[in-house]
Design a protein around this nucleic acid. Sequence first.
DNA 1: GCCCAGGTGGGTA
DNA 2: TACCCACATGGG
Length: 219
Amino acid sequence: MNRRNRAREILKVLELRFGIPRFPEIATDPFKLLVRTIISQSTTEVNTRRAYENLSRKMLLTPKALAEADIKEIESSLFVAGLYRNKSRVIKRVSQLVLQELNGSFDFIYLDPLEKAREKLLSLPGVGPKTADIILLFSAKRPVLPIDTHINRVSKRLGLVPIKADYERIRKSLEALYLPEEYFKVHILFIRLGRRICKAGKPNHSECPVNHLCPSRQL
DNA sequence: GCCCAGGTGGGTA
DNA sequence: TACCCACATGGG
């Protein structure tokens, strides 16, 4: 089976197995999504939720409120998520920049040409390619496919992208294999697959519903 | 008590 | 370019 057909087949199996994911409600507010995505960096889903709820109980999640917030208040909310000093500094700084440089508005993610919007996001502290692409896809429905560590591992194991591909190469390869309206689905379902077959660093490929579609047994 | 999760940014050669 | 490390808590 060639790569494109395998890609199609894999998505079909994952949809059947995990269902078709829905856009999360938070995506309607790109700033809140940014805050949550920064909290989620290198952190499990459960602890991300705890920290995000702590923070939203304590203050409004707007650029103004966070820019003016006491850093200690942010830190105590984010403690459970780990890397909390970094993340607190980054969230406060990014809020100040959004206020000062962007007039508190994220409208550019909908209006600017894609590459320009992406560069603007990447220029913000704490925003790397994955975080930028999450905002662009989830909130603005722009045709980009964010790559996280699960997607990286899974798409290489499935032989959909070259083993040595870096972030941009993986993104471009997967984007070429799927339709833009499928990117969100692919993003979520590949992550679910990655979590399913790799718990606590121990891969368990017998749990992999697309194991028969893997060209190799490695990774 | 060890090992791992896992994105960004800064540093080195 | 390619690689290394810091950041830090929580769960297996």
